[in-house]
Design a protein around this nucleic acid. Structure first.
Lengths: 147, 147
DNA sequence: ATGGTGACCTGTGAA
DNA sequence: TTTCACAGGTCACCA
């Protein structure tokens, strides 16, 4: 997904496009999450092996799937800005709860004032190691072209 | 405590300074409250003999002790505003659960539009009758000078 | 639908 | 630098 200003702003949440959420993300129902409707905590590994934990839940009020807790930290530490892209992948070999999850991002803007992310001469990405899995579960959520 | 804008605003809660909460307030643990972590209901008597009941609990997420239910009513009826002070006292003659609790407040601002509180020529307070107990368990939480 | 309440979350400043 | 308190928020539930 190409992130919106709101996705990287003060709202501290990323809206996950509904169709992708319902196709590829773990369910957020009470039955699936174990009795409450508070969503689930998901661990995503980035290309550097760093694990990002986000709360993933459904907001009835806006009929939207969102990543909330943990997201603002991701934005800050990666220096993500509006127009940049994020993509999510999963290993897809077991059932949802056992799948390994991955996150990738690509910064479209140069001269970013990212917190501490390494900035290369090229457009910066969160690495594309996950592509080695050959899965494109989240296909369409973001461009998947590597560097 | 000198109350903050948030303490008297729409959040309907008072943050009890942690150090004082842990020293002088009843414990909020599951063992003490009887199995749930929903906090406890405490009755505080003011200088007029009026009893104010507040829910007192611990918020894990912010690592804070708070008074929630009942607090907004107290704010409304006393006309408490940011900068005013509230103080809590307890009789301290038995164990925590048997102690009698008191609340006192002092309004630092004149010309308040309090709901129905009597306004004197002096700074208004919630009376200082509790001082007759001679205890200052909450010493340091607020000035204890009477009017 | 709406407001009150409860639990959860985060940025920021200070220790 | 890291931790911590907390002021200022959010959303979900329930009556």
């Amino acid at each position: 997904k190409a992130v919106t200003p709101s996705d990287v702003g003060k709202l501290n949440r990323l809206v996950v496009p509904k169709q992708h959420a319902e196709k590829h993300f773990p369910p957020t129902t009470a039955a699936a999450t174990g009795s409450n409707g508070k969503g689930v905590l998901l661990n995503f590994e980035d290309g550097e092996g760093k694990v990002w934990r986000f709360r993933y839940s459904y907001w009835n009020s806006s009929q939207s799937y969102v990543l909330t807790k943990g997201w603002s930290r991701f934005v800050k530490e990666t220096g993500l800005r509006a127009g940049d892209t994020v993509a999510f992948y999963r290993s897809a070999y077991g059932n949802d709860t056992e799948d390994q999850l991955f996150i990738d991002y690509k910064k479209m803007n140069k001269n970013d004032g990212a917190a501490d992310a390494a900035v290369s001469d090229e457009n910066e990405t969160g690495h594309v190691a996950v592509k080695l899995f050959g899965v494109d579960i989240a296909g369409g959520m973001a461009g998947s072209s590597g560097g």
